[in-house]
Design a protein around this nucleic acid. Structure first.
Lengths: 95, 95
DNA sequence: ATTTTAGGTTTATAATATAAACTACTTTAT
DNA sequence: ATAAAGTAGTTTATATTATAAACCTAAAAT
């Protein structure tokens, strides 16, 4: 691609981008909260969180709130950088 | 998706978005020109142009320049609208 | 005349997205 | 106490998408 910058395929996905966008604005967010805000199904969200986590774009920690399992996600430095690069690259498409 | 607007899947593709972005700025463009500007392979470009054309987002006309076949593409009104909606929706992800 | 190049299209394969089905537990109702 | 329903996810199967490789047709070049 000469005129257009490549878009990180990991971020160029509606749901993963929504997750990252959301995490950009907060310290951390729980699975259920992300699910609501994005409108994703649990299965889809679970898969996409795994991918973001495997890439090191987010951190995931599992704990319990009372007796219920809670999955918390937060964006990493690497994730912030990737998001910023993505947004910048995207601009070459929006002229 | 509650907080995030849906992104037209037809436009949320690196190559198709590049093609549309390019066509937004010109009256029409030839296959070979688009191929160069986007860096796409001919096969991939052919497929994606078909999809944009089938959706009515672009018009495609085939003719000859001397003895060589030329495929010309231009964005349609429907395409312009879809592109604008896409860009707008995208903004909900870039906050 | 046969090789190479131009301008594509078609087809096969790899990657992605998504929902449906499942697991493991907890809470509520009977 | 037990069955039914709900919560919080994960795994698996399937449909869709993206992409490159192989192919086609005609024109130039050697």
């Amino acid at each position: 691609m000469s005129d257009f910058k490549d878009l990180d395929p990991l971020l160029h996905s509606q749901l993963r981008l929504a997750v990252m966008s959301l995490l950009m604005g907060v310290q951390s967010a729980e699975f259920v909260y992300i699910k609501e805000k994005t409108g994703a199904t649990a299965g889809n969200l679970s898969v996409q969180i795994d991918k973001l986590s495997s890439a090191g774009y987010i951190g995931v920690s599992k704990s319990f709130k009372g007796k219920k399992p809670v999955t918390s996600c937060s964006i990493t430095k690497k994730g912030i950088e990737a998001f910023e690069i993505y947004v910048n690259s995207l601009k070459s498409y929006l002229k």
